Simulated scan of single mutants.
Amino acid sequence: MKKLALAVAFAAAATTASAGNMSEPVMEAPVIVEETAASSSAAGVWVPLLLLAVVAAVVAAD
């Protein structure tokens, strides 16, 4: 009876130790982050300044 219990214990340990399948592991592609060229903070200022200059020129012409 002890040998049967020992055999069952070894069989149970062997099945849990080798659980899983034999398929190839799936490797995920690495994430590549591309840094864009940072524009200067004054780039958004040119359009309002140009608009202000045009308005000032129109007002000065009157």
Rank of each mutant, 00 (worst) to 15 (best):
M1K: 07
M1I: 05
M1S: 15
K2M: 03
K2S: 05
K3V: 08
K3R: 11
L4I: 13
L4S: 15
A5F: 15
A5R: 09
L6D: 08
A7N: 15
A7L: 11
V8D: 10
A9I: 13
A9H: 07
A9P: 00
F10G: 10
F10Q: 05
A12R: 08
A12I: 12
A13V: 11
A14D: 02
T15L: 11
T15G: 06
T16K: 09
T16H: 12
A17W: 14
A17D: 10
A17V: 07
G20V: 02
G20E: 00
G20Y: 01
G20M: 00
N21S: 03
M22I: 13
M22W: 11
E24R: 12
P25W: 01
P25S: 03
V26H: 14
M27T: 12
M27Y: 14
E28M: 04
A29D: 06
V31C: 02
V31G: 05
I32M: 13
V33P: 01
V33H: 15
E34R: 05
E34W: 03
T36G: 14
A37P: 06
A37T: 15
A38F: 01
S39G: 09
S39I: 10
S39E: 08
S40K: 10
S41W: 12
S41Y: 03
A42D: 12
G44T: 07
V45L: 10
V45N: 09
V45K: 05
W46R: 06
W46P: 00
L49W: 13
L50R: 15
L51M: 07
L51F: 12
A53E: 03
A53F: 02
V54M: 06
V54P: 00
V55K: 07
V55D: 02
V55L: 11
V55M: 06
A56S: 12
A57N: 04
V59C: 04
V59M: 04
A60Y: 12
A60Q: 08
A61G: 04
D62Y: 08
D62P: 02
